[in-house]
């Protein structure tokens, strides 16, 4: 409710939603899987692989004084807490009880069945009241908690891109690697979060790319250039895929649904044309930059932005300076 103005009187003050004591099939989640500061819970990768039921405690609290004042004016408020999952089209209510001792607090237990959810679930609390004679009007809402039932589609949650070594000629390699057995690397965009696949059977690649302390300046330069070249082309693939995922709703472009797509675009687009608003950037990305001549302008600028982003220029400068100092490059 913080960023929205409603055409009627709303409740001032924050609504705090807290999720705690999360358990899968009765077993408490490891503390690292609950990140209260970021309001997220990671449920994938649990030791109990075939778990069925997630239970947790939910508490909602708002400012007692402001609530009392609002209820004196508009009558009693009602709390709705909803678990929403877009991939499964589920919108599940979570019923909480209001404290009789402190009416600004609601508490209760929630139970979510894994068979109803996929990817991520968002939990949000909303207070409603009868305002101006109209019932069930939202008057305040909390920030959302996010529960990741499956590996996250967000770089923000998962950290950096995962890098995996495969023998691209082996039957156990992913299909994209098998299709290009002589490539040094490919980027797999079919997973929930992209992965860089490096080719074990590409002679000399492992020694060049692995981290080592005692490299000669020439080896170090080769190491850095190889890493940067991979990073650059992977980022280009990410940007290309993310651009294609921009959606149109009633002819208005909207951020892609997958989180990493949106994260990539939010990082790159403002650098392509600084000073433009989000709406303008999205419009350009969905129309102007997709067709000639805008596409050429976009390709040239995104290439430069990516170079800066991955530190390619800094790395190349460092390598060449080291080679010059040693007289290898004159």
């Amino acid at each position: 409710m913080k960023a929205t103005s409603f055409p009627y009187s709303t409740l001032r003050g924050d609504v705090e939603l807290t999720v705690s004591d999360a358990r899968i099939d009765g077993t408490p989640l490891p503390p690292d899987d609950v990140q209260a500061n970021d309001r997220l819970i990671a449920l994938h990768g649990q030791e109990i692989r075939e778990w069925q039921r997630l239970t947790f405690r939910v508490d909602v609290q708002t400012n007692p004084g402001l609530l009392r004042q609002y209820e004196d004016e508009h009558g009693s408020v009602t709390l709705s807490v909803i678990a929403s999952c877009r991939p499964t089209n589920v919108r599940q209510p979570i019923r909480l009880g209001r404290s009789t001792l402190d009416p600004s607090i609601w508490s209760g237990k929630a139970e979510l069945h894994r068979s109803h959810f996929r990817d991520k679930v968002q939990i949000q609390a909303q207070l409603t009241a009868k305002v101006g004679g109209v019932a069930h009007r939202p008057v305040s809402s909390s920030d959302s908690w996010t529960l990741y039932f499956d590996p996250s589609e967000s770089f923000r949650v998962a950290g950096s891109l995962r890098v995996v070594w495969y023998d691209f000629k082996s039957a156990s390699a992913p299909p994209i690697a098998r299709q290009f057995p002589d490539s040094a690397y490919v980027v797999d965009l079919e997973r929930s979060l992209p992965e860089i696949l490096l080719n074990k059977s590409f002679e000399g690649l492992e020694p060049i790319l692995r981290d080592a302390k005692d490299r000669s300046p020439t080896e170090l330069a080769l190491h850095d250039i190889a890493r940067m070249s991979i990073a650059r082309s992977v980022w280009q693939a990410l940007v290309y895929d993310a651009m294609s995922a921009i959606q149109m709703e009633d002819d208005v472009p909207t951020w892609p649904e997958r989180e990493w797509h949106a994260e990539v675009l939010r990082r790159i687009l403002p650098e392509i044309d600084p000073g433009k608003s989000e709406t303008e950037l999205l419009h350009m990305a969905s129309v102007d930059w997709r067709q000639h001549p805008g596409s050429g302008s976009f390709a040239a600028r995104s290439e430069a932005v990516i170079g800066d982003l991955i530190g390619a220029n800094k790395s190349l400068r460092k390598s060449t300076q080291a080679l010059i100092r040693r007289g290898i490059v004159t």
């Binding site: 409603f6 909803i82 919108r91 599940q92 069930h136 009007r137």
Partner: peptide, 16 residues
């Protein structure tokens, strides 16, 4: 955007 469906009408939980 100015009417909360979940407050208006109970949406029963799907029976797992």
């Amino acid at each position: 955007s100015t009417l909360c469906l979940d407050a208006l009408a109970i949406n029963p939980v799907v029976d797992a």
